[in-house]
């Protein structure tokens, strides 16, 4: 059978199939699930279904937290700078860790490239994606 004939023959057969009817158990299941969902307190549901007032309050709270972070961060950093522990850590970094940074960076880059190569090969060979 030619490809186009096969396509139309199968299409005709499939389109003639009646839509499978839902089992009688579906409606009670759905209603029970909905009732259980409605009984849950509002804060345990997804944010989009929260009452409008609480959505507004949560947005305001996040905004206040973000503003506090922006305003407070310089002050916190300045306080840390003044401690002796930070000075000691800076010396250790310069003498021990800093010389290794270029090598570490090269190793990380090589690992990323290897992962990308393996991922691409896997996508093409196993999943048939391009």
């Amino acid at each position: 059978m030619r490809r186009i004939d096969l396509e139309s023959a199968v299409h005709e057969e499939l389109r003639a199939l009646p839509l499978p009817a839902a089992p009688p158990t579906l409606l009670p299941r759905v209603l029970a699930a909905v009732e259980a969902w409605a009984r849950r307190p509002w804060y345990s549901r997804t944010w989009f279904t929260w009452p409008g007032v609480w959505q507004a309050v949560s947005i305001a709270a996040v905004a206040v937290a973000a503003a506090a972070a922006v305003v407070g961060t310089p002050w916190v950093l300045q306080s840390i700078e003044e401690t002796t522990a930070v000075t000691a850590a800076r010396i250790l970094w310069r003498t021990l860790a800093a010389p290794l940074v270029p090598y570490l960076f090269a190793v990380v880059m090589l690992m990323c490239l290897a992962c990308a190569a393996v991922g691409t090969a896997l996508n093409r060979l196993a999943f048939g994606r391009t």
């Binding site: 839509l19 499978p20 839902a22 579906l26 409606l27 759905v30 699930a33 909905v34 969902w37």
Partner: peptide, 30 residues
């Protein structure tokens, strides 16, 4: 219900899984 369940059972080929999916879909509709 027939539309949702019928679509699901055709795609999944399994009535039990189709009923689970139909329940999830109607919960989202609710």
């Amino acid at each position: 219900q027939d539309l949702v369940y019928g679509t699901a059972v055709r795609l999944l080929g399994n009535p039990v899984d189709a009923e689970d999916v139909a329940q999830t879909v109607f919960l989202r509709a609710f």
